[in-house]
Design a protein around this nucleic acid. Structure first.
Lengths: 267, 267
DNA sequence: TAGTGGTCTAGACCACAGG
DNA sequence: CTGTGGTCTAGACCACTAC
C-alpha cells in the first residue's frame, strides 16, 4: 500500500477543497502508515474518546476502523506504549495510562530514600500551605505558553515522609483549564495530584522535563523544612505537558537530600 | 515454531550432559525466540566479535545464522537499539554503539548551559588533577563489586567550559581491567574518557545510574572551582556498567549550577 | 470457550546508501 | 545496480484472562 498518502478514517479526503485552507498537515504527509495511525489514536486520546484507565478498542477493531492490518496498528500502539501513553495487558487489552490506580504512586517523582524505596516509607503526608489566583509574571507565563498577566493558580505544599518534611513544591497552573481548583479540593483528594487533574479537570500529564540545580535554602524554605538557612537544597524545576506537547504545569520543588537522593538512569 | 525451547547456534544441545553441571540457563528457557536471539547477539557483543563502531551482520545474515526469520532478528535488534547498544542506519546497516565519533560528545553528561546546549560552548577544557593507584576502602569497593583492599585507580579532573571551571570529577576504576591507565595517557587522549576506555581497554560502558544531591562545597572543591566555601553544588554519584550489568566505574561529580543545570526528561 | 495481546513466519515492496 | 534497514500484509499459533 502507498506509504506516501495520508489517511483519515471514515473521512475520505475532500479533493475539491483548496490546499491553502487545509488545516495544516500535522501528519507530515510523507510518513509511514503506522505513524499516521499513531497520530489518529493520539487524537482520540486527546479528544477524550477513551479516558485514563479505560480500555481502548482491540487491535483488530482499530485495524478495521483504520483499514490497515493488525500489525500496523500494533506498531503504532507499540510506540504509544513506549511513551507510557497506554499500557498493554496480555489477555485483557490496551488501557489508557493514568496517574491514579497505578502501582507506582508517583510516576514523575524521582526522589528516593537512601535505603529502600518510596513505597517503603508509606504514604507521604501532604500539607497545602497556600493556594491563590494571580496574574502571571513573565517568568511564569512564558514556560506555560501564556501571556504576561494571564490568570494562573499558584499553590504551595509540603510533603513529609515518616514525619520529616522533605519536599516543598510551588505549582503554577493555567487559570483556564483549572478553574475551580481550591486548597480544600486538593486537601480532600486521596491520591497523586496528577490523578486529581485527570478526574476533576480532564488534564492528563504525559511527560515532563526537569532542570535541576543546587541552591541555598532561603529563610522561608528553611523554616518549612526545619533546616538552617543556607543549607544546600535540590531545586527541581519541572514543566509538565499534556498531549501534543502543550505545557500545563510549572512546578518548582525544593528537596532536602541529606536522607534522600534524586535517582536517574542513563543509557 | 516452539517458543518453549531454548536455542543455541551451530551448537546443538548436549542431552547427555547432566543438568546439574549445565552452566546455568541464563536464557530463562521459557522466553520468546527473539529474546533468545537478543541474548545471543548480546553475547557476541560482549565477546568482542563486533567492536564499538563496527558493522554487525545484516538482519538476513543473522537470521540465517540463528535459523529464524528476519522479522525475529529484527525484533531482537529493535530492543538492542532501544537500549542504545546498537544503532541502525538505513541503507548502511547496524552498528555497535560507541562513545567515540558520536555526534553527541558526552552521551552520559546531562549538564546543560542555561541557554543553548553543550556543543555551543565548544569543547570542554580538561585538566587531570590527580591519578593514583590505591587499595579500595569499603565504600568504593562495594559499588564496584570488588573486595575491600582490592586495587583501584583513582583519578580526579576538572572540566571547564569557556574558561570557567564547572565540573570536578573523581573517578574510581577497578585496577584489573584498567591496568596501565596513567594521567599522561588520559591527558594525551582526544575525545571522551569512555571512548578511551573502549579503544585502549576494551571496556564499553552501556548504561549508568546516578544519585543526585545538593551539598555544600568543601575547601578543596571551592578552590578548584573558584567559588566561596559552602557554596551549594550538585553532587552526582554515578555507577557505570558494561555488558551484563557489570559495574566498571564509580564516579562522583561536583557541578556548579549557577550557569548550568542538570537536565532530565520524564515520561 | 471466546477474545485479547504476543510471537513467528514468509513474502512483497519502499527508502536510502554506495559502488 | 545491489544490499541494507524500514514498512506492510496475511495468516498461523501461543499465552493469558475472563466468563
Amino acid at each position: 500500500m502507498a506509504t506516501t498518502t495520508s489517511l483519515s478514517p471514515e473521512t475520505p479526503s475532500t479533493p475539491g477543497e483548496p490546499e491553502t485552507t487545509a488545516p495544516a498537515p500535522l501528519t507530515p504527509a510523507f510518513s509511514p502508515l503506522y505513524q499516521q495511525i499513531k497520530v489518529l489514536i493520539l487524537k482520540s486520546l486527546q479528544a477524550g474518546e477513551w479516558k485514563p484507565g479505560e480500555l481502548i478498542p482491540s487491535e483488530m477493531d482499530l485495524a478495521a476502523r483504520f483499514r490497515v492490518s493488525q500489525g500496523t496498528v500494533r506498531k503504532a500502539i507499540d510506540e504509544l506504549a513506549a511513551e507510557n501513553l497506554v499500557s498493554r495487558r496480555q489477555g485483557k487489552g490496551t488501557f489508557v495510562s493514568t496517574h491514579a490506580e497505578q502501582q507506582v504512586q508517583y510516576r514523575f517523582l524521582r526522589l528516593m530514600p537512601d535505603s529502600g524505596d518510596l513505597s517503603s516509607e508509606g504514604p507521604a503526608e501532604r500539607q497545602i500551605v497556600d493556594c491563590k489566583r494571580l496574574r502571571a509574571p513573565a517568568d511564569i507565563a512564558h514556560p506555560l505558553a501564556l501571556r504576561t498577566g494571564d490568570a494562573v493558580l499558584q499553590l504551595r505544599r509540603v510533603l513529609a515522609f515518616q514525619g520529616t518534611p522533605t519536599i516543598i513544591e510551588d505549582v503554577w497552573l493555567p487559570g483556564g483549564p483549572f478553574k475551580g481548583l481550591t486548597a480544600d479540593r486538593l486537601a480532600a483528594y486521596r491520591g497523586p495530584m496528577y490523578a486529581l487533574f485527570e478526574t476533576e479537570f480532564g488534564v492528563h500529564m504525559v511527560r515532563a522535563e526537569e532542570k535541576i540545580r543546587a541552591i541555598a535554602a532561603d529563610a522561608a524554605s528553611a523554616r518549612l523544612l526545619g533546616l538552617p538557612q543556607g543549607e544546600p537544597l535540590l531545586s527541581v524545576e519541572r514543566i509538565a505537558y499534556t498531549y501534543n506537547d502543550v505545557p500545563m504545569e510549572l512546578r518548582r520543588g525544593l528537596y532536602r537530600t541529606d536522607t534522600h537522593h534524586y535517582k536517574n538512569a542513563l543509557s
